[in-house]
Design a protein around this nucleic acid. Structure first.
Length: 165
DNA sequence: CTTTGGATCGTCT
DNA sequence: GACGATCCAAAGG
């Protein structure tokens, strides 16, 4: 399965997490971004397997979670192709269940729409071209989102917008 | 509402 | 030793 094929299929799917205290948290995915492994300079797996991205080279369906900026975590769904190492980053979601618990984990969120409207925000609330080295202002072409959803993260003006098929 | 700068550390060269 | 698939508070219009 190619990441670009999988990405739009993940929209409107639910990310569910049962926390230790018995609360069930859920978010509906409203924004994703595909990373095409060795063909995509913005992908962590672009330069081959490393200790961190080993999960992306493993079986499809696994969750690749990484730590960045010294304080944030992000989640990817591995699309598969053990050589291709493609994956889909979950960029934003709409809170569905366990909103009170989410708020307690994210005191910085002022409104409900701030709970999951970003890659690290989603991971913190639910848990469980981009970085392009060359060129300035390059836009990642493989971002998909649910049109009009208030939880979609604020991208830079001019981001290539791909509508849901 | 928009802009700006600081926080903070694992991973790779 | 440098940098990053980011977030947030503060300050200015």
């Amino acid at each position: 399965m190619d990441a670009r094929e999988l990405a739009p299929q993940l929209l409107n799917k639910l990310v569910v997490h049962d926390d230790p205290s018995g609360h069930r948290l859920a978010a509906r995915i409203v924004e994703v971004e595909a990373y095409a492994g060795s063909e995509d300079a913005g992908s962590h797996s672009y330069r081959g397997p490393t200790r961190r991205n080993a999960t992306m080279f493993g079986p499809a369906g696994h969750l690749y979670v990484y730590f960045t900026y010294g304080m944030h975590w992000c989640m990817n769904v591995v699309a598969g192709g053990e050589l291709a190492a493609t994956a889909v980053l979950l960029r934003a979601g709409a809170p569905v269940a366990g909103i009170e618990t989410m708020r307690s984990r994210r005191p910085a969120a002022r409104r409900n729409r701030d709970l999951c409207s970003g890659p690290a925000r989603l991971a913190q609330a639910v848990s469980t071209r981009v970085g392009l080295g060359a060129g300035k202002g390059d836009l990642h072409p493989w971002r998909y989102y649910v049109p009009g959803d208030p939880n979609v993260s604020r991208g830079p003006v001019g981001v290539v917008q791909r509508m849901r098929p």
